[in-house]
Design a protein around this nucleic acid. Structure first.
Lengths: 302, 302
DNA sequence: ATTTTGTTTATTTTATACAATAGACAGAAT
DNA sequence: ATTCTGTCTATTGTATAAAATAAACAAAAT
């Protein structure tokens, strides 16, 4: 009825803790472990029982001691440590972004449930989320309309993104030099320069850096709707990046350069230059998205 | 397991059709009725059976004829014609806007289900929606955090609203005089003037007019995210208006005047004046929201 | 040939069931 | 006095069930 992904994730987490111990050493208290793994003590107790059953821990008048070092085979595979819900969300978004269906297609919860091997409950929980993404439209008592990842979608999402990012960047400029976002931004600038030096090796690290830069800017707006919208952008780009590997190095180089112009303008508090650099960067990014949408339309189903 | 609000709504709709007939007249075809009520033929057939059972229609070799005129008592009460889901959504939002709980309060799906007399399924379907509204925050495997209808909420929602409305207004100005939104806007202007003439009688009509004005502007942006956001605004204001009756006439008068300045600037394509009028109006509106939030904080639970 | 009705099948909406997880409380241990 | 563990209770996540509704198909009728 309910999966046990939390248990398995915690089990793997406890295995890691075991790895830091010597044979015969005592495990930390249940409270300590549950806090460090952000999980209830109930779950930890269940994990402890599992570890005892696997002869990794032994009971010794209340205390639990390491009986043997865990091996790689003791851990649960990563695929089992995420909830059904999260798995379906990922697979559904990937499926859509890979262009398996076109605009106008009707999605039925029952069919999706069969396709992804879950219950309709899970599907019905996620469809409104994708509606929030602007990807589908609800028809009460009927199927959902897929609106498609079209050029119009790209233009609309970027129109809002530009408004929000410019607004946020303006509030960033108003912050004092010692504020946390400014400190972060200076670190991010350094990382950009470092990455540019080693572009051949490091460009795989760029997506994470990109995310941190834009999120740092967006968060200074201190507006839940702006943050929430960036979550959409972020999710979309995360999955989009995975199947759009073409020219990745070149695109990364361009993005790094544009980012640096943007960051420098921000840190100089040069509003004009910031505005220009930001628009330029978003224009490039939108162009990339449009290009990958176009490519997908021509060769769907990968 | 499933309510039959659609049946009851359709039943009432068919009663209305019966009212247009004379005794002994034949009912329209099932197809015709189902299309005019936007409902499946299956439902219509069930309704027909109900009407026959109520001796309003008689069967006469295939054809259905009016046997007696329906009375008011034949109809289902309106409360039964909306789905459980829609009812809960309304009641939940009203409950929140009336200030029954404060910021920081934890909401559990199980408790809400008991409170509103439904299953947790329905509640779990709506909570993400209110998250989208920026009112609550999810804690996986745990309760939801109510963030409160606070001054911060008002500021954040209005910051975005202003960005979106100004953007949309700019695209409105770019449209040709004969476009549909311009035609609508001229009609809306006339309605404003009419309402100003009879402010004492007609101010109850203002909320609807307000909705149409702003939606006309927003729709010209042709951006699903902007439209979607206006849905939030709209919903919020609809319920907020219901318990904020203080000074309603005075506020309506101010709003009508501000609207007219805004509309005139739009129709003159005067960007500067439009910008000014729009900001002024939204500032007033935000002030009203802040005032009512403040009032609620002082005297919660109505 | 299209429209209408009867019949059958699939899907949506809603409630409920049950394992996993969280959280609370009391006694035991430091 | 705090922290730890054992135990118990409540809630969440997910699947399933059943009625309402939609949709598809076939025979009958215009």
């Amino acid at each position: 009825m309910k999966g046990n992904a939390v248990y398995k994730r915690s089990y793997n987490g406890c295995l890691a803790i075991c790895g830091t111990l010597g044979l015969g050493d005592e495990m930390p208290s249940e409270n300590e472990i549950s806090q460090s793994l952000s999980v209830s003590r109930t779950t930890i107790r269940a994990v402890m029982a599992g570890l005892e059953a696997a002869a990794i821990l032994t009971r010794d008048s209340g205390a639990r001691r390491l009986a043997r070092f865990p091996e790689a085979a003791d851990a649960f595979p990563d695929t089992q440590t995420v909830s059904t819900s999260a798995t379906v969300e990922r697979r559904f978004l990937e499926w859509i972004l890979q262009g398996h269906i076109g605009p106008g297609h009707l999605l039925t919860a029952a069919e999706l449930a069969r396709q992804f091997g879950t219950s309709t409950t899970i599907i019905r929980e996620h469809l409104p989320h994708f509606q929030h993404f602007g990807l589908i439209e609800r028809r009460p008592n009927s199927a959902w309309l897929f609106k498609g990842v079209t050029p119009a979608f790209a233009h609309e999402i970027y129109e809002v993104r530009e408004m929000f990012e410019l607004r946020a960047a303006r509030s960033f400029i108003d912050l004092p030099d010692e504020s946390l976002p400014w400190q972060r931004m200076r670190a991010i600038e350094a990382e950009h320069r470092a990455l540019l030096m080693e572009i051949d090796k490091g460009y795989a690290l760029f997506p994470d850096l990109d995310e941190r830069l834009h999120r740092t800017v967006h968060e200074t707006a201190d507006n839940r709707f702006i943050k929430d919208f960036y979550d959409i952008i972020s999710m979309l780009f995360h999955y989009n990046a995975q199947w759009d590997a073409e020219d990745e190095k070149q695109r990364t180089f361009t993005a790094l350069t544009e980012h640096l112009a943007y960051i420098e303008a921000l840190l100089r508090r040069d509003l004009k230059a910031m505005d220009r650099a930001c628009r330029q960067h978003l224009k490039t990014a939108r162009g990339n998205l449009l290009r990958s949408i176009d490519a997908r339309t021509k060769t769907p189903r990968r």
